[in-house]
């Protein structure tokens, strides 16, 4: 089934929002795919880095639901290789920020068993509470 994308005012606003937060001109992306094969995480991502850029270009907010934006390790390999000079790491960070700013709690430490907390890596706990610092 080929999906139909309706481009609306909302999609334009989404693109504008991501451009504002990231400070990058996302429409500059020429979809060459150099980011994807530079990315050490690409194979684990549900959509490729170049696809993330495309989804933002057309204003598809579904990109916020992808796992890929959380897989980005901010290693900046894409950033130093992008032939259009786009800082992709900033773009994925902007997408994460949009999610984080919704202030949705997925984890309440107070409700967790002590043993459960102990099993979790510290960094995972810190990450989960990152919204309070953003």
């Amino acid at each position: 089934m080929t999906e139909v994308i309706q481009i609306s005012e909302k999609s334009k606003d989404f693109l504008k929002k991501v451009e504002e937060i990231s400070g990058e001109v996302i429409t500059l992306c020429e979809q060459c795919g150099i980011c994807t094969t530079s990315c050490p995480m690409a194979e684990d991502m549900d959509v490729s880095p170049s696809n993330i850029m495309r989804l933002v270009q057309i204003g598809d907010e579904g990109v916020l639901e992808t796992k890929a934006i959380w897989f980005c390790a901010s290693c900046f390999t894409c950033t130093v290789r992008c032939p259009r000079g786009i800082d992709l790491a900033k773009v994925t960070e902007a997408l994460r920020q949009i999610n984080l700013r919704k202030n949705t709690d997925y984890l309440d430490i107070n409700r967790m068993d002590e043993s459960e907390v102990e099993d979790l890596p510290t960094i995972a706990l810190v990450s989960s509470m990152r919204k309070y610092t953003g």
């Binding site: 060459c32 994807t36 490729s48 170049s50």
Partner: peptide, 8 residues
């Protein structure tokens, strides 16, 4: 990346 199929 074959950017048309999105496959590597």
């Amino acid at each position: 990346e074959d950017t048309l199929t999105r496959k590597i």
